[in-house]
Amino acid sequence: MALIECTDLTKTYRLGDDVVKALDGVTLTIDAGDFVAIAGPSGSGKSTLANVIGGLDRPDSGQVMVNGMNLATAKDKQLSAYRNSNVGFVFQSFNLQVHETALENVISPLVIGGVGRKKERRLAGLAALEKVGLADRAHHKPTQLSGGQRQRVAIARALVNNPSVVIADEPTGNLDSARGVEVMEELARLNREDGITLIVITHDTGVAERATRVLTIIDGKVSERVGAR
């Protein structure tokens, strides 16, 4: 069943005098439960595509349909609500709030969404941390955690609102290979066991090989090959 339908997306950036086509007529469909890898050289438009699908950025033209809503034209409020409850982001540089504890970071989408009471939020946050094996680090600040642990906190934050899709932008980029493998295991497991749609942006072929679908983007154009699995 189609979860996200992108039709003829374009997006251009101006870098000085150069015009960079980040998205050039991208049309694709992502089904619920898919594990999609988006690969391509840097500057090819991978992140732009992920941000557009995640409702963090808007295309110049084309449409992104999710549950009958066109993200390209949705209002800030609708788009924010979509990011808050339907999408979980995992970033290369973790993007945790450094002054908050792991638990506070994890429950921040609930606080922003105005979901639940204090106790309910806490329980949901601890459950999400438990899922990534960090329940005992709940009250540590990010600076007291290793890189791998930080990324797992970020994953817990992405999961706490039970999103339908998790978008991970180079999630292993700042980790050594062993920690990178752990984090990918974690994400793959979520896709496999919980049926969460997973979109991973990577230029690591090892990561791409785990995916069920691999989209390659070059100069804003997407081509697809079915994944190794």
Binding site: G54, L56, D76, K77, S80, A81, R83, N84, S85, F89, F91, N95, L96, Q97, S108, P109, I112, G113, R157
Partner: peptide, 16 residues
């Protein structure tokens, strides 16, 4: 600035 970006990514509206 970055914190604001994070908050926006996890669903904060402009109004928030």
């Amino acid at each position: 600035t970055r914190e604001i970006g994070i908050m926006r990514a996890i669903g904060a509206t402009k109004r928030t």
